[in-house]
């Protein structure tokens, strides 16, 4: 590699090529700089940072829309399929009204989303009312009706500077699912029946361990204590059930995978998993700044979200692998919201 080349001519050759090299490096640096600026501009103008998003730029919407000129909002969604769809539904509906929306996809569990909301990294995200009460407000009371649960959550939210927008018709509760053969063998129909099983292997998202709508509530209400817990990334429970690594999995009742009878969902007679209709949690300050049309746009989406609609959309994404953005778009179009 290092030959003795001290003759002047060689040195000149190298100097020339070095210049070319530096020029290339400079061009590269410039290109990168432009790319970086470009991407930060994107963020300012409110298009999505999401990989999945076919983005409708805010600047391309006609003037005179209610959202035109309003400050950009950052919408977050949590870390599973239904949330990706909800994020796209609210985002696309808002953008169609001229609002500038930046979507932060897949940010994590409730605990992380809540922290992001409180620290101003996001302005709103869709949350489930029961999870809001237990995991955010630390309220473990069992409510008889969804209205009572919502009123309690709303009161807490208002004391802390957020607003809970009206609930969706659909509810997506946690549930424990088993393989039909396992249910038959152990004679299981309800969650209460699990108490008699020794060393129950239960797979669930990690946060299930510490939640009232999780192991804590299962132990307190049903006496299910002899549990070997596997923390699983959301979405992997079905695979773990199929492969026999776990006996029962925490699932969501609107999961597309539950269609078709491959799994038995156990009843929850004492309502540990509570009411889980979705409420968009919004920073009250942002809600005021965006004006009444902002909430009206969100509410118009929420009220169209029935359990059947949500199951079908989840199946389209989780099983047919359509993109959340495309599924949300066709749903909004079919319902006159775009």
């Amino acid at each position: 590699m290092l030959r003795r080349q001290s003759r002047k001519r060689d040195i000149n050759v190298k100097q020339g090529t070095l210049r070319i090299g530096l020029a290339i490096l400079a061009a590269l640096a410039l290109a990168v700089g432009l790319a970086a600026c470009g991407s930060s501009n994107n963020k300012n103008s409110g298009t999505s940072s999401s990989a999945a998003g076919a983005s409708t730029s805010a600047s391309s919407t006609p003037a005179g829309q209610p959202g035109t000129g309003k400050p950009a909002v950052t919408l977050g969604d949590k870390n599973f399929t239904e949330q990706f769809i909800l994020g796209q539904l609210y985002r696309q509906a808002l953008e169609a009204k001229g609002y500038a929306v930046r979507l932060k996809d897949n940010i994590g569990s409730t605990e992380i989303a809540d922290k992001a909301l409180r620290s101003g990294q996001i302005d709103l995200y869709p949350e489930y009312i029961g999870i809001f009460n237990t995991a955010v407000a630390g309220d473990t009371k069992a409510y008889g009706t969804v209205q009572q649960a919502y009123a309690a959550g709303r009161a807490y939210a208002e004391r802390h500077g957020f607003t809970l927008l009206p609930l969706t018709p659909f509810t997506d509760v946690d549930a424990l699912a088993v393989k039909p053969a396992y249910a038959q063998k152990n004679n299981l129909t309800s969650v209460a029946d699990l108490a008699k099983i020794r060393g129950l292997r239960l797979g669930a998202p990690p946060e299930f361990r510490k939640r009232e709508t999780g192991l804590v509530g299962l132990a307190r209400v049903y006496g299910i204590r002899d549990v070997s817990f596997s923390p699983l990334t959301i979405g992997l429970q079905y695979q773990a059930l199929d492969s026999g690594k776990i006996d029962t999995a925490d699932v969501f009742t609107t999961d597309g995978q539950l269609q078709g009878g491959r799994y038995t969902v156990l009843r929850d007679p004492k309502n540990v998993f509570g009411f889980q209709n979705v409420t968009p949690v919004v920073s009250s300050r942002v809600l005021t700044a965006e004006g009444p049309e902002f909430q009206a746009t969100i509410d118009a989406v929420s009220q169209k979200l029935t359990t059947e609609a949500m199951q079908r959309m989840n199946a389209a994404v989780a099983i047919d692998k359509q993109s959340p953005a495309a599924v949300a778009r066709s749903y909004l179009q079919a319902n006159g919201l775009l």
Partner: peptide
């Protein structure tokens, strides 16, 4: 509290994989 459901939503065909 609950968003009132004016009419049942239209569920389009999202296409099968």
């Amino acid at each position: 509290l609950l968003a009132p459901l004016a009419a049942a939503p239209v569920i389009p065909d999202f296409g099968r994989g």
